[in-house]
């Protein structure tokens, strides 16, 4: 059986890439830009998610009872909290002041502070108050909830990080929206540029293609060098984009870590596999689809 040589197709693809140098470079650059923007936004969204998970207590409010409240009054406060709309009934946790003291004492056992706790117990003093940890459902209704809690008799203090949670949620939504918008626009543009690059290559080799057809070349023989050319564009763009992304992410990550102690930046080594796979998938897909679309009319018998 006659076999076509892979090296022939590859050499033709490289020649094609070289012959249409400017357009090939343009395709690589546009695709690279798409991949970098896509990668950066994906990593940003992922990091926001991780940080949100880390500060999962954001949808919790800690309510401190008045120190003069009786056990009965505290139980009543608990009942009233559980009845509120935005409160997850099963997720209201009551910590008595004795429990808190015991926990704190155990936490500092064997340290210098241990004596302070011993003294407190000996003197029958407990500076802590009963508290309720309230997990709520809807972030957007948290202000109402805070007001409602404030209205309950016997509640002395309310601790909430709702403002921060709201801001982070808002940022996350905006970033996701911008991410999708840019992704679609850049994808269409890069596909368009790749299609035009291959079209130019096809046009330049129109006569060659015509002769190929006359001497009995199969569609695959005619098509493969162009598909390979598209794949090469995708491959080069993916490779360069990966290196740029790696450098950028590490650099910006370091900078953010230096300036903020709250933020967690996922190390690049944990996501590099996804990044390169994603880049290769999008790069090769656009390369192959671009070539296939521009060659469609030449595939007719």
């Amino acid at each position: 059986m006659r076999k076509y040589s892979l090296s022939y197709f590859l050499s033709q693809s490289f020649k094609g890439l070289w012959r249409n140098g400017v357009m090939s470079a343009a395709s690589i650059l546009v695709l690279m830009a798409l991949l970098i923007v896509m990668g950066s936004f994906s990593l940003l969204v992922y990091n926001i998610d991780v940080n949100l998970e880390n500060i999962g207590v954001l949808n919790e409010i800690v309510v401190f009872c008045d120190e003069n409240c009786t056990d009965e009054e505290i139980a009543d406060i608990g009942r009233q909290i559980r009845l509120l709309d935005n409160v997850n009934e099963d997720m209201v946790k009551h910590n008595t002041k004795q429990q808190i003291l015991d926990e704190e004492r155990a936490k500092y056992a064997g340290t210098e502070v241990e004596n302070v706790f011993k003294e407190m117990v000996d003197r029958g003093v407990n500076p802590y108050r009963d508290e309720f940890i309230v997990t709520y459902n809807d972030n957007s209704e948290v202000t109402t909830l805070e007001y409602q809690l404030g209205q309950i008799q016997g509640i002395d203090k309310i601790n909430s990080r709702a403002d921060l949670a709201e801001k982070v949620e808002g940022i996350k939504n905006s970033v996701t929206f911008i991410f999708i918008f840019f992704l679609v626009v850049l994808f269409v543009v890069s596909l368009f540029v790749i299609i035009n690059t291959i079209k130019l290559a096809v046009y330049a080799r129109k006569q060659e293609i015509a002769i190929m057809r006359y001497v009995g070349a199969t569609k695959w023989f005619i098509t493969l060098p162009f598909v390979f050319e598209g794949m090469l564009i995708g491959l080069i763009a993916s490779g360069v984009a990966y290196l740029v992304e790696w450098y950028m992410y590490t650099y910006i990550g370091k900078m953010l870590m230096q300036n903020s102690s709250i933020l967690t930046i996922v190390p690049f080594s944990q996501v590099d596999g996804f990044v390169i796979l994603g880049f290769l998938a999008v790069g090769l897909f656009s390369g192959i689809v671009g070539s296939a679309i521009s060659l469609r009319k030449y595939l007719k018998a």
């Binding site: 006659r2 076999k3 076509y4 002769i211 001497v215 009995g216 070349a217 023989f221």
Partner: peptide, 11 residues
């Protein structure tokens, strides 16, 4: 040679 190559003739 081109005509032979396109039909997969060995080198």
């Amino acid at each position: 040679a081109f005509a032979m190559r396109v039909i997969g003739e060995p080198t």
